[in-house]
Design a protein around this nucleic acid. Structure first.
Lengths: 127, 127
DNA sequence: CAAAAAATCCGATCGTCAATCGGTTTTTGC
DNA sequence: GCAAAAACCGATTGACGATCGGATTTTTTG
């Protein structure tokens, strides 16, 4: 999934704002970067067509909201990397852990804690 | 870093072949997808300009080799995701662990083993 | 060294896609 | 029903990857 610069900004904004209509998005961006309402409109539209935003007519205008949360979306991106570079899970894990390790010991601990948490969930599913 | 379809294929090929000149790359791809030698040439050139391939004149032709290994490159991609979506380390880790967890328990164990391995490296660095 | 062969480089074309916006149509609230 | 707001349509521009043909440069070799 390729996203343009404005698309990324808008998507990020919507993860933060949870929900907004074109006008609000436009107001948010017009000072720091300009651009007409129409530009925002068509960007929202493109994101909607790409399945990244859901929309619903509220009163007189569409309200847009992310179709998935940040985590899920990042998951998709990582998945596509896996596919494009036929990265075996090992390279992926290795790349990732070394990234975390650049941080510090605490990150590694959090990572371990998350693994444990997913184990719990899994065994719950099995029941 | 945006890569086109052919660029990804060529890069993948070079990770597998370690090193090749344009002719070899062309021979590798011409059956399964066609394309002239020139097309391959300019693709290698683009990858070179993007800093993803190093090249060196050996005898009469350039030999290309990846500028970084798969793991490092994937690390870069993940880093750019982090940047584009201002993903705190937590979302990133969470996305990643849940991806691994889709696999199975064994993946989680490998992940833990890797964390341990990075710890070892780190304490060695400290010495 | 000169001609032929091989490889590189240049640049043109095409296709795709994001960004941008003007103008037209459709909705909606009064 | 009408005026304002919103949505939709479609044209334009700008990047950029893919693809090659042909000119240029380099290498080989007779």
């Amino acid at each position: 999934m390729i996203l343009g610069e404005l698309e990324k900004l808008v998507l990020n904004y919507l993860w933060q704002a949870r929900e907004a209509d074109a006008k609000q998005v436009h107001q948010h961006f017009e000072k720091r970067r300009g651009g007409s309402l129409n530009t925002i409109q068509s960007t929202l539209d493109r994101l909607h067509k790409k399945g990244l935003l859901r929309r619903e007519k509220i009163a007189h205008a569409f309200r847009y909201r992310p179709a998935m949360d940040r985590t899920a979306f990042i998951g998709e991106l990582i998945r596509s990397v896996t596919h494009d570079f036929s990265a075996d899970t090992d390279s992926l894990m290795s790349a990732f852990v070394s990234l975390s390790a650049e941080q510090d010991e605490r990150q590694l601990e959090r990572l371990e804690a998350m693994i444990e948490r997913y184990r719990q969930n899994k065994s719950k599913d099995d029941k």
